[in-house]
Amino acid sequence: MNAVVRANGVSKHYGKFEALNHVSFSIEPGSIVGLIGPNGAGKTTTLKALLGLTGFEGELNVMGLDPRRGRHELMQKVCFIADVGVLPRWLKVSEAVDYIEGVHPGFSREKAQALLAETDISPRQKVRQLSKGMVTQLHLALVMAIDVDLLVLDEPTLGLDILYRKTFYERLVSDYFDHNTSIVISTHQVEEIESLLTHLLFIDSGRIVLDIAMDDIADQFTEVLVSPEQIEQAMAHHPIHVRDMLGKKNMLFEHQERETLAGLGELHTPSVADLFVAKMQRRSV
């Protein structure tokens, strides 16, 4: 099947600052991609380029379209939620539903109303009367009622407390499970979305530093808990990251056979958070 997104050498400059530096990646249908990086790494710029909200150099193909041209055409197939609080404060909930129904051919009023009925949001309320968490719930309900091929979420849970964050992601998973919708989620809070992702894209200083399917992590990365006496031996295999752990060293290896490492200590598959720390620190060294 054709990729939903294909980026090839995408660059973006703000004056002398390189927000994106020859970024290339692709997103397959049905995948859930975590775009992960520290603040200012280029996450939002990447997403804005995808959505036709900013200019860029290079090649970018989203659903067969160049997002620089015909953003409105693209938006029939793509939906996005920028970080919280971008719903206009004067808008009433019922008006938001009427509006999207009037401009989006893929919107289902029934579905939006069913989703909203599960919340405490009343159709007569204005956005300014809702709490931050409710605004996010509203936005998510509106977007989930739209049938699209690609959903882009830019830090969707920024500024929300942990309870809302958890329900937000549970909701997302239950609603999009079985769909052929691809989802791109950008965040710097890795742990929370780890379980729902199928792919990881790490970005730092405008470059992709890791592009991997979740299923391939175990093949590519191995974490070994090394006892003090074996440290020297283990260091010979060039771990990409080492951290102290209860008197032992926890070492992360990339592209090393498990059989070779087995003699060094207990083997684990690293968590996304460990990978993230390793990859980011490596670049800053």
């Binding site: 959505l51 693209l74 920028a82 609080g85 404060r89």
Partner: peptide, 18 residues
Amino acid sequence: EDRKDRSILFWKSLPVSD
């Protein structure tokens, strides 16, 4: 105003041409 309060990101997320 919608650029100032960032709601432009919501309006532009819908298929309405400029």
